[in-house]
Design a protein around this nucleic acid. Sequence first.
RNA 1: GCUGAAGUAGCUCAGUGGUAGAGCAGCGGUUUCGUAAACCGCAGGUCGUGGGUUCAACUCCCACCUUCAGCUCCA
Length: 646
Amino acid sequence: MSKIKITFPDGNQKEFDRDITGKQIAEGISKGLAKEALAVEVNGEVWDLSRPIRQDATFKILKWSDDGGKDAYWHSSAHLMAEAVETLYPGAKFGIGPSIETGFYYDLDLGDHNLTKDDLQKIEEKMNELANRDVPYVREEKKWEDAVEYFKAKGDQYKLELLDEFKGQTISFYHQGNFTDLCRGPHLPSTGKIKAMKLLSVAGAYWRGNEKNKMMQRIYGVTFPTKKELDEYLFRLEEAKRRDHRKLGAELELFLLTPKVGSGLPLWLPKGTIIRESLIEFLRDEQRKRGYQSVVTPHIANLELYKTSGHYPYYKDSQFPPIQLENGEAFLLKPMNCPHHHQIYSFKPRSYRDLPIRLAEFGTVYRYEQSGEMNGLTRVRGFTQDDAHIYCAHDQLKAEIKATIELTQLVFKTFGMDVKIRLSYRDDKNTEKYGGEAGFWEQAQREIREVADEIKLDYFIALGEASFYGPKIDFMVKDALNRTWQLGTVQVDYVMPERFQLEYIGQDGQRHRPVIIHRAPFGSLERFIGILIEHFAGEFPLWLAPIQVAVLPISDVFMEYAREVYEALKDSGVRVEIDDRNEKVGYKIRDWETKKVPFMLVVGEKEKVGGLVSVRQHKKGDQGTVKREEFQTRILDIIKTRALTV
RNA sequence: GCUGAAGUAGCUCAGUGGUAGAGCAGCGGUUUCGUAAACCGCAGGUCGUGGGUUCAACUCCCACCUUCAGCUCCA
C-alpha cells in the first residue's frame, strides 16, 4: 500500500498508509484526543473524521475549541434538528441549515403549520432522543441525476432548486438515522457528541434571502458539548438583555420613544441630552484642532437639490414624501447633509490655496425606514450625523483620508470600543445601484485600500456595501445582542463633484475638480449612544455620566454641611445632586447605586468636623474619607482627561 | 414591507366570561438614622385603539396601532 506524508501543525511530519482517516490518526496520537476530535482540517479544508486522506497533506485535528470544530458541531446539530422536525412533521420541506457564529438555524416549509414555542419544546425533546441514539453521520456521493431523483421523489422543491446550480457535478449527501440531506459537510462522527441543546426562536425568513420568494420558517438553535456550557451561554444571553439600551434608556431616563411623536423619532430626556452634548463637545474640540469649520443648514431643502445630487428619485422609497407648495415648488426633509455643504463650497470661487476645506455639521436627517426596521436608537427615522465634508485636491486625498481614519480611531479608543473595519466596495454585478463612471470607482477603491494598507488597518472587504456615490471605510461595532452596526464611516466621492460641478482654481490657473471625503466618526449620535449605553451597560465614565456625584447626608442634622459640599462641587462645574430626602443612608445608597451614579459622598458628624467627605464609588463600595478639596481636585481631573476608569 | 409573538398602574408582573390585584416607584405622616430597601397611611387603571359576539368581555372574534425576534432594506 502506498504511503502519504502528513504534516502536523507543529511542523512535524509523519508517514501513513494511503486512505488513512483523521480519526485513525487521532487515535494514534491519544485516546483522549480521538474522543475530543470533532473534525479535521486537511490542506486547509474542514473534513469529516471518517473521510480517507489520499495524498500528502497538512493536517490538524479540530476540537470544540477550534472554529472549524464548532462549525461542524453546529452544522451537524442543524441536521439533527431537521431529523427531529421530519419525524414530528412528516412531509416537511427543507431550505438551508447552516451553522452561524453561535449556533445554527434551519429554514423549513411546514405548509400551513405555524411553529409555536410548544413545538420548539417538542422538537428539542425529539432531538435529545435522537442524539442519545448516537448514530453516525454518513457521507455518500451520488451522481447529480440520482440526487435530483431523490428529491423529486421526496417532493422537496427547495433542494431541487439548490441542485440546479450543481448540474453535472458529483453531489454529496449525509445521512444520520432516518434523515438524509443534500450537504457539502463536514459533520461530526455521530449524533451522540451533541449533548446539550436549546432551540431559541422561530421567525420568518425569505427563501434564498429574496423578498419576492416564499417566506419559510427559520428555527434558531444552539448546542454544546455539556449542559454547563449551554447554561452559561443562556445566562450570558440574559445578562446581555440587561444591557439593552432600550431598557436602560428608560430606566436611566436618557431618551423616550413614543408613538405619540412617531415611530423611530426619539426624544432626548435631560439626562440623555447631557451625554449627547458631551459627545458633541468632545468631537468639536477634536475637529477644531484639525482645521474643521462648523456650518449650519436647514432641515428641508428644495427637491431640485436632491435631483441634482441623484438622491431623488433613486431613494424615493426611503424618504418622507416631499412637501408640495401651491406654486409647484417641492421641499424634501433632508435625508443627508452633503448637498447643502456642496452649496456652501461653491458659493464663491475656491483656490487651491484654500484646500482642503473641511465643513462640519451635527446635521439632523430624516429617512423613511421600513416599519419593521426600527430598533430603539440604533435604527431610527430622524437622527443627527456628526457629518463633515472635506473638499480637497487629488494630491491631498490620501493624507486627508488618513487623518479622518485617525480621528475616527481616536473616537473609538476614547470609549474603549472594539471595532471591525470594513472596506465597503460596490458590487460590479449590480452597477445600476451606483452613480458615476467605473473608472472613478476603481480609482477610489484602490485609494482607500492603499491608505488602509499604508497605516496597517486590519480590515475586511465587503462587496455591495458602498454608498451610491463611492466606496467607504466603515467602522462596525456589535451591540449587546451581538448584532453588528455601522457607526463611523469615511467615504471617498468623485461623483458629487461632477454632479454639482464643484471647482477650484489650481496653481496653473485652470479649473479643477476637487475630491470629496464624507466622514462621520460617530456615524449618527443616536446609534452611537445606543451602542455606547450597551457598551458601558449604563455605567458611563465620569465625563459622560449625567449625574457624576450624589451627596448623601446621614440625617437632617448634617444637611447644612452637605449643602456646602454640594454647592462647592456644583460651582466647580461638577454635575452633582444632593439627596435631602428623609431616608436612611442605606436607602439612599441603594437608590443611587441603581441609578449608576459614579460617586456618592456620605457626610455625617465625622466629615463635618474634619472638612471631609466619605467617598463611595459605584459598584466598588466605600473608598474611605478624604478632604473635600482633595476630592474635588481629583474628580475634576478625571472629568477633564475623559478617563475611562478611575 | 414580510412572518411570528406580545401589549393590564410610572416599572416588574398576577388575573381562563360575573365588582381589576401585588411588589417597587410616587404622595402624606412618624422616625434623625454611618455604606444596597425603617414604619404607618393615601392615591394611582378607558386592561393598546376601534368594532363585533354575549344578559355580562381584561378574558371570545375581526380590524388597526405600537413593541419585540428574525427576514428584506439601510444614500
